[in-house]
Design a protein around this nucleic acid. Sequence first.
DNA 1: CGTTGACTTGATAAAGCTCAAATTTGGTGG
DNA 2: CCACCAAATTTGAGCTTTATCAAGTCAACG
Lengths: 243, 243
Amino acid sequence: MLEKNENSHIFIKKLKIVSSLSDSEIKAINSLQTFVKKIDKDIDIVSFKENPSSCCLILDGWVGRYRILVDGKRQFLSFHTVGDIPDLHGLHVSPLDYSICTLTPVIVAFISHDQLRELINNFKGISTAFWRYTIADSAALRAWMVNMGHRTACKALAHLFCEIFIKIAIVEHKEDKNFRLPITQIEMADALGISPVHVNRVINELRENDLITLKSRFIKIKNWEKLANFCNFDPSYLHGNFI
Amino acid sequence: MLEKNENSHIFIKKLKIVSSLSDSEIKAINSLQTFVKKIDKDIDIVSFKENPSSCCLILDGWVGRYRILVDGKRQFLSFHTVGDIPDLHGLHVSPLDYSICTLTPVIVAFISHDQLRELINNFKGISTAFWRYTIADSAALRAWMVNMGHRTACKALAHLFCEIFIKIAIVEHKEDKNFRLPITQIEMADALGISPVHVNRVINELRENDLITLKSRFIKIKNWEKLANFCNFDPSYLHGNFI
DNA sequence: CGTTGACTTGATAAAGCTCAAATTTGGTGG
DNA sequence: CCACCAAATTTGAGCTTTATCAAGTCAACG
């Protein structure tokens, strides 16, 4: 499906969080040609060591950046949903240092590097916005690092739940702390660097502390304040403090 | 010491790794005015939650990005040495999401945001180079994350030693795997998210496996191939695969 | 209604933490 | 140069967290 893009408003919304764009810049982004594709769960859309010629804008669903270690273990580096272009780096780096796989069925709009490079060359504001987007991304990486490095498994998992909730809330404009988790316990384990069995036990701990209920992938955050406080969740890294 | 900068060639060298610069761009960078300062060990040069109006270019010594958690623990996010501007983010984000402290005595050149913004606005190549610099930085963060998340303490520490060696080798053009570690065991612990006592035991393990000798902060990598292989060190994240 | 993948629980082992007490090292003043 | 101090390193013992292996149960879906 090659189409004149009606979807880029999602991306524009994301860019506007980090930067300001002129009308002509918005128009330019809106006139991008994209190749929209539905993709199943558990498919790689970007592969480590390949040289892609387009970036992927997520229109629906969830994807994860990851790397596979020599011993076969998988480390997730970040999760992304609607409005994200997780491989924007590809405009400058090839091959990338990570792969991206789908965590749920997704709808993705592929945008050619050529078009994006033209935007960057012609619109300073877009170039700056992309740079800032990269900066926001790196702040999120740092937040994950802190989460993995120096927190107990229980707090780290709580933090991950908080992050996922906020990301859903941003996209769906919901206040309701009741949502479907896009990831399995195995994927949580690979995000936090702990074993799947331990993830399960730690979920029990969160249940016992009356912080969440979780059944059939449906999580309910029973007490947001208490949960966020428990894991010292500070959502500012998800919008950033851009000047 | 406010001085017409003779030091920016160090930074230019770093930028050239990730991007190309025109003669006029190089000239513009060379004419930056910097405020050069000698600073002792264990001093914060950038503080979390402050709003700095300049960036710091490291001319000598080592610094570390870090964050303090509510329980008082410190998590190092990256280490930097000659030629790095670890707080380049500050051009777009305020306050920053991390602090930067000196790990050794350092010499730092402070460059005002105003000057840097002028460069960005007037020279597209510089703007792109800075963006790419940010991208290289985020790849290094991902490498650390993988290191912390899914490797044993022993391999993680070996990886850190490899990284530090390569960074020294780049600056000093040395082949000799014999160098002074810029960080204490406590700092290693805070980088890897393990306890100082365990760092010490893990160093012993590396010694017993005949991979290194280490005494009075002087480390000798006895068998580079073996060490790099042991921890699956791939130095490409330190130069990147820029197009 | 059977199969498959995800989740759950138990038992045991390994990795890493904490506390505490040496010992070594690097610097500093006399 | 020596004595001394503070910081860093080293070692031991016991404990906590997390991993691993194994054997379930549950739930979705054709």
